[in-house]
Amino acid sequence: MEIPYTISTRPDTGLWNAKIGIWLFLASEVMLFGGLFSAYIFLRIDAAPGTWPHGLLNVPVGTMNTAILIMSSVTVVLAWAALKMRRYRAYWWYMLVTILCGVIFLTVKLAYEWPQKFEHFGAYIKPEALWKYEKYLGNQRRAEKGLEPRIEITGHLHSENAKEYEVALDPVNAEPDSPAMDRPHFFPLPVTDKIATIEKEDVERATMFLPTHSAYFASYFTITGLHGLHVLGGVLVFTYMWLPVSKKLYQRNPEHLANRVEVSGLFWHFVDLIWIFVFPLFYLL
């Protein structure tokens, strides 16, 4: 039995069925991501002064990934236009570039950005022990300048025993009194060779930069992880439509393949639009 209205429009809706379907699906996606973005904004508004991490993500890498996604949206729409003009060869190349863009995006995210965070360590110091770590926190000077106090020491975990952490410090804790460290650094600075010893009894909580580190990283990993799953889904669908099996459909009914590419292109645009909001929210602001 043939599925109706895959090419021709339904008389009652004026649209073919897959287009109705994808927009209903995207409406549910708006609610899903809308809820997550709202949660992030309220968590941030409600955070105590000085506790919300800022400038921990690599802005140049994030910008590059944003450009890659924008380019993939351009190529997917060109792939669809090529099919409409019955130029299968051009469609094949545009689709290949789209798939590669998606793969590069995921590779950068999963093989570079996320692992960098997994290797980073942070220890929140108990309020009563902050004075012991003044040389790493510089809170006296910050109080004089009217800046929010630092309560966390960050860097790479050098070693750990039952009583202490040894941390190769980030520049912000290696030179806490430097005016250059008063602001976040969006071009990441390498960790220093200065080692700090932190007693475990002085630590409120210590963790790598994982979702357990803070509400910021919990939101970051949830939203970028969910977004990454959507990118993966899009790449898989595009790969299916790029493989030789799609050529058979093209030879049988080119308009049917063009409609399939249009609905998957709509999904891809939505996924890219989500990133347009993720990038400034997490990386810049």
């Binding site: 927009w23 924008i70 949206s73 729409v77 669809w80 249009e262 292109g265 709509l266 645009h269 939505f270 890219d272 639009l273 347009i276």
Partner: peptide, 14 residues
């Protein structure tokens, strides 16, 4: 909304 229209919206946001 067609892919063309959504693409234009996307380019505006970009």
């Amino acid at each position: 909304m067609s892919l063309k229209a959504f693409h234009i919206v996307f380019i505006i946001f970009s």
